[in-house]
Structure formats: C-alpha cells, structure tokens
Amino acid sequence: MDDSSVGALIGIVMSVVVLGVIFTVTRMGANGDMGRNGAVGIRTKSTQRSDEAWRAGHAAAFPVVRTACLVVLVLDLVCLALVFLGPAGLVPWLGIIPLAGILVAVVFMARAAKKGADAAPRAPHP
C-alpha cells in the first residue's frame, strides 16, 4: 500500500468520525440532552437566540443530518472500494471527496437549523 492509499484511507476514516460527531451532537440538541452552549452544536445567530430556538433548530436539522450522514457514508464506501479497485490516479482524491461532501451537507444542515430556530417562539422583551 502506497502513501496515497494510506492518505485516502485516513480521509475516509476521518469522514466517518466527523459524521458520527455531527449526528450525535445534532440528535442531542434536538432531544434536549445538550443545552445551548458556546462549544458544540449548530451555533448560528438563530439557534443561539434562546433555548427553544436551540432545540427547534436542531430538531429541524436532524432529518437533514440523518439523510446527509447516509449519503456521505455511501460515498465513503464507494471511495473505500475505489482505493483498492479504482485507477491509481484517482486514489489521492478519494480521501478528500467525502470531506467535500460533508462541507456541502453542512450548508443544508445550517439552513434547516435556521429555518427551525426562526420558527420557534420568541421570548418577550422586558
């Protein structure tokens, strides 16, 4: 196994790890198991507005996250197969492709979270 294959495998494994973190954190935020905080979660202006907006944003994003995780996991499996069966010129890119998929998915996740958080009731101003 050459260096480009090892690099591709590292990228694919890291993609799976990142998907696991995204899925778990979003589910915890949606279920109320993880409150609003400054460290992890979908931290946008809309979701940080209130605890209700935090939960609503994560709940709205969770179906998108679930779908995105499945799609990128399939992409990971295809890339994994191509590391061993595909053309050698493609191998260096196979660790980057799933991570690019995650970046695209994050845009859709954030948009869904914003929509859900914006629909949450606003706290009255004192």
Rank of each mutant, 00 (worst) to 15 (best):
D2P: 01
D2N: 10
S5W: 02
S5I: 04
V6N: 04
G7P: 00
A8I: 02
A8R: 02
A8E: 02
I10L: 07
I10H: 03
V16K: 06
V17D: 04
G20D: 02
V21L: 03
V21F: 01
I22T: 08
F23L: 14
T24F: 04
T26N: 11
T26E: 05
R27Q: 12
M28R: 13
G29R: 10
N31E: 14
D33C: 07
G35W: 11
G35T: 05
R36Y: 13
R36S: 09
R36P: 12
A39Q: 09
I42H: 00
T44Y: 02
T47R: 12
T47D: 04
W54Q: 07
A56L: 04
A56M: 11
G57V: 09
A60N: 01
A61Y: 03
P63Y: 14
V64K: 01
L70C: 05
V71H: 00
L77I: 14
V78Q: 08
L80S: 05
L80W: 08
V83G: 07
L85Q: 07
G86L: 07
L90D: 00
L90F: 07
W93V: 13
I96R: 03
I97K: 02
A100L: 10
G101V: 06
I102N: 01
V106F: 08
M109K: 05
A110N: 11
A110M: 12
R111L: 15
A112T: 02
K115A: 13
A117Q: 09
A120G: 06
A120W: 05
A120K: 03
R122V: 12
P124N: 10
H125K: 11
H125T: 13
P126H: 14
